[in-house]
Design a protein around this nucleic acid. Structure first.
Lengths: 208, 208
DNA sequence: ATAATTATTAATCATTTGATTAAAATACTT
DNA sequence: AAGTATTTTAATCAAATGATTAATAATTAT
């Protein structure tokens, strides 16, 4: 045993203490969720004294709120600029949404499960005027979908795009645990889907 | 104030004590997840003394394991008989899977988020020969999809069916919180999807 | 009816966990 | 260099929480 070895999972880096804690909190919170995450886990992961967590962030909940806001922006931020672009044709919007989401989610695979899971806790305040609500009002995308399919609620198509794109990441634990598919095969499938989902969505939009 | 009133949220019934505890555990675990659920919550919900929980189930984890197994069977049990039916044509399989899932999930809206969320905890043993693995080996459904689209990995289509069907329930908290859609509108959308998703899946299977 | 078994309760334990405190170390200012 | 402010640490607290125990009540068997 060698002394002064970095502890098992520490994030050893030259980041500021505050940023080390946030980085560790991102990891622990998204992996375990708020309730299962212990402040001691975060402190150890960050390689800092537990008291520093409270020194910089006051409480576990305050720290969580910062990370949660960040993660929600990360998750919803992908759609927002594309959805509201008035010049981009519908087909390009679909291409971009799917590709950008899959690229981002490959780098942050447990982001959707984390956010969607924590959101249902009613204690956490949830800003009413968050992207989603705007996304479904009178954005360019929704209007374009309405034009293409006036007979159906446009929410159907949003659910289809997001469902096909995001669901694989939510269902991943099953495939992983079962050992049915390797990490490599999974990524390969996802890359195929970047091209396929837009084709399918367009087929759906035309289907009568 | 009247005495002997049932406490706020108790499940007061003529069930056996053991079944009362299980019923309460189903509710509390699926609502809050394992980590956030306290044994005291479950005891109160069941209207029993805390010690009885341990008397009947030894520990929180043992109780959880029973509920979890049950919930996984509930979630995956919908697909299994349909998927392996050798006589049923592909189109009917799709119809049945989508309809049965939506009907079941309307009654158990937070089932998918609960199961998918708890599954990722590696400590929980996860049976390797669970439905899912069989579902993707050489079942009738997979063979039929291969026949319809030999050019693509059949997993794509499973992800599409399940994504379009299950994702709305996972994403529901967002819509709910934002107040974008009422409970009634949501159910109405879901009922529309029972007919629409099969149409869309068939369009996808034909799309080139 | 009495004994034995099973079910239920109140009280208590032992750990875990979020948070605080007071002292020590480090950095910054003048 | 001395003093001040900031950062970090070890020790500790208080509350929460899963679990147990010993006594009591209810049920079942003899």
């Amino acid at each position: 045993m060698i002394y002064n070895m970095p502890k098992k999972k520490q994030i050893v880096s030259d980041l500021s203490t505050e940023e080390k804690i946030k980085e560790a909190a991102r990891k622990v919170f998204t992996e375990k969720g708020y309730a299962a995450a212990r402040t001691r886990d975060i402190a150890e992961e960050a390689g800092i004294n537990l008291a520093l967590l409270n020194y910089y962030f006051r409480s576990k909940e305050k720290l969580f709120d910062e990370i949660m806001l960040e993660k929600m922006q990360q998750l919803f931020g992908v759609m927002f600029p594309i959805v509201s672009d008035e010049t981009l044709p519908l087909e390009n919007k679909i291409d971009l949404i799917v590709q950008n989401y899959i690229d981002m989610l490959i780098k942050n695979p447990n982001l959707p499960l984390f956010v969607l899971n924590e959101i249902r806790n009613p204690s956490k305040t949830f800003d009413k005027n968050f992207p989603i609500s705007k996304m479904l009002k009178n954005t360019s995308l929704v209007n374009q979908i309405k034009e293409a399919r006036p007979d159906l609620n446009p929410v159907h198509f949003l659910l289809n795009i997001l469902g096909m794109t995001i669901f694989p990441f939510i269902a991943k634990p099953i495939f992983g645990h079962v050992g049915l598919i390797t990490e490599k095969e999974f990524t390969s499938l996802l890359n195929e889907r970047k091209k396929l989902i837009p084709v399918w969505i367009k087929a759906i939009l035309k289907s009568k």
